[in-house]
Simulated assay, not measured.
Amino acid sequence: MLTEFFGASTLEAILLTLKLAFITSGLLLLFALPLAWFLANWQSKAKPLVMSILALPLVLPPTVLGFYLLIAFSPQSALGQGWQSLTGSNLAFSFEGLVLGSVIYSLPFALQPLYSGFSQLDNRYLDVAKTLGFSAFEAFIKIVLPLSKAPIVVALGLSFAHTIGEFGVVLMIGGNIPGETQVLSIALYEQVEALEYSSAHNLALALLIFSFVMLAALYRFNGVTRSDEAR
């Protein structure tokens, strides 16, 4: 049924995009959790500068970021050469390159909710944990994470949804290779270029519905969680 509605090539792009989104959001959560906790407790004059650098993808045109990532991933760069020596393949125009680029591009969407949630956490919980003999790591795992359920879910949902909708960055560093780097946004662009408006409409409508449902679910979850905490 899905093949009839979208077409075989589009269905392949859907599966590739979902794979990219799951991997990217999972990696981002692992990376952003300790980073957000460190930033929330870090006091330094350099903090605004560091926060600005990490938040750049929020305002930087995706093609600009994609251009510099393409240079960084090229076989002539140290990163590209290192990757090629380890794997025997190029980092640019590969699925692995898409994953790395997506992690960088979607980082603020995972980092900001976590940083905001950690910054608002009542430090009295941590003070009690210290008196009970908890190490910093134990307090983070057993106290901070359970109390930060809402920011974690929002960070995971936003990074997943943002990866689904990526275009500029993935086009620059991945190109349009079916089954390898052709994600949904690229497939939609290709359909419009080919004047296949019926197929483009089906895909665009599916993305619109997905985006709306995802955001509605996140707002609903966040609102319910805040109501429970207020009781």
Rank of each mutant, 00 (worst) to 15 (best):
S135R: 13
G82V: 08
G101L: 14
G174N: 15
D122V: 03
T131M: 14
L54H: 10
P146R: 10
W37C: 11
R220E: 12
Y189E: 07
L218H: 05
Q76Y: 08
V50G: 10
G117Y: 02
A187P: 01
E12N: 04
L208W: 03
L91I: 09
L33V: 02
L158Y: 11
S199G: 10
N202G: 00
P62G: 01
N222W: 01
S116L: 08
V144Y: 00
A200R: 04
S185D: 05
F22S: 15
I141D: 11
S85F: 07
S94H: 06
V224A: 15
L65G: 10
N123F: 07
L208C: 08
I53N: 14
S148E: 07
L70H: 13
D228N: 15
A36M: 10
K19N: 03
L121Y: 04
L91E: 02
F93W: 14
L16T: 00
T17W: 08
F5L: 07
P34R: 15
L207E: 13
F167W: 03
S102M: 11
D122G: 06
I141F: 13
L27V: 12
L86G: 11
M1L: 10
F38V: 04
A150W: 07
L30R: 08
V154E: 02
P108S: 14
N41L: 11
R124C: 03
A92F: 05
N90L: 13
S52R: 14
I209D: 04
G117N: 04
G97H: 04
L132Y: 14
A55S: 15
S119N: 14
S198Y: 05
G165P: 02
A204D: 01
K47N: 07
Y197W: 08
I177R: 05
S102D: 05
A55E: 11
A150T: 07
I53L: 15
I152N: 12
L215E: 14
F93C: 00
